[in-house]
Amino acid sequence: MDKIILDVDTGVDDALAILMAVESGQLEIAGITAVNGNVPLEQVMVNSKKVLQLAGRSDIPVYRGAGQPLLKGAFHEFGVHGDDGIGGSLQNIVPRVEDPVLFAPDFMIEQAKKFPGELTLIMVGPLTNLALALRKEPTLPQLVKQVVVMGGLVSESGRGNTLPTSEFNIFADAEAAKIVFHSGMPIKLVSLDVTMKTFLTKEHIEQLQGSLYYDFVMKSTEVYRKYSMDNYGQNGCALHDPLTVGVVLDPSLVKTAKYFVDIETKSELSYGQTICDFLHLWKKEPNIEVCLAVDADRFTTLFLDTLKKQL
């Protein structure tokens, strides 16, 4: 059973990723770490605890992390996730658990040292917490088993979701992403190139009828599905963050290859762009295992079957 920390900025797909991780039965979740991103940090804390409470897993601690990016101002995605980040759902749940005192980056360091070579970091928000942990503990890359990152856009420039060249998680703190990508950590990148192919439709959600999560998934995705309809002509939402959990559960869901990848932090036109040197023009050693293709249907089935366990 993989020991993980799940780092989130809990909007809708983060919430679905938490549920998938919890219900998989295959992951030992040491804790959830919260970071500013889709919504402000305090809302991330509330949302994460609400989702865990819905799943009956309030025993999993949620650690408060970075409340703002390393250098730039905070950037949020209310238009995709709703004013509260989870589409106005779970209004009847009041979190009951007090927050741990330990700062999220310190928790990452603590767990990596406690379980050297065993810990997987699943990063589905901006990479601020991990960048701070790396700055404090330079040996961290040698201590973790792997880092699986949802972020970036490597082969379809112009189809970003923040700038034409850029994906939200990287754009929200590109300086942090650059630190992480150059850290020497064993990183697998789950980018928009594959996550946009994993689309949860309204018809898919109907398959959850009778389960504990049907009402939540239907309600929480309303704003997200409207955004997708307006922009892509489809009544559904991409399963960005759940796929990142899925890649840990079953690596065979994706095809990967190693390349040198860097992050643009200076250009106004392409801040946050994830640049992959497919042709090895820079003559640098590969630093990222990039997901290039996904078995989307098999993943969507896995996601639905995992949440149906509560039927």
Rank of each mutant, 00 (worst) to 15 (best):
Q142D: 15
Q142W: 10
Q142E: 15
Q142L: 14
Q146L: 08
V147P: 10
V149F: 07
V149Y: 04
V149N: 02
G151M: 06
G152Q: 05
G152E: 09
G152N: 06
L153N: 09
L153A: 05
V154H: 06
S155W: 08
S157V: 14
L163T: 09
L163R: 10
P164I: 12
S166N: 07
S166P: 12
E167L: 11
F168P: 12
N169P: 08
I170P: 11
F171E: 09
A172M: 09
E175S: 11
A177S: 14
A177R: 01
A177M: 04
I179H: 04
V180D: 04
V180H: 01
K188L: 14
K188V: 15
L189R: 05
L189H: 03
V190Y: 04
V190Q: 05
S191K: 01
S191R: 02
L192V: 06
D193W: 06
M196E: 07
K197F: 05
K197R: 13
K197L: 09
T198Q: 02
F199M: 10
L200E: 11
L200S: 04
T201G: 07
H204S: 08
I205C: 02
E206H: 06
Q207T: 11
Q207K: 12
S211V: 06
S211K: 05
D215V: 05
D215M: 03
K219P: 00
K219A: 06
K219I: 07
S220I: 02
T221A: 00
Y224T: 00
R225K: 09
Y227H: 06
S228H: 03
S228I: 00
D230A: 11
Y232N: 10
Q234H: 13
Q234T: 10
N235H: 09
G236W: 04
A238Q: 03
A238Y: 02
L239Q: 04
L239R: 01
H240C: 14
H240G: 14
T244L: 02
V245K: 04
V247R: 05
V247W: 08
L249V: 11
S252Q: 13
V254M: 03
A257R: 05
Y259M: 03
F260S: 00
V261H: 01
D262S: 15
E264P: 08
T265I: 15
K266V: 13
K266W: 07
E268S: 11
L269A: 13
Y271W: 04
Y271F: 13
Q273P: 08
Q273F: 07
Q273Y: 06
I275K: 12
C276H: 02
C276K: 04
L279H: 14
L279C: 09
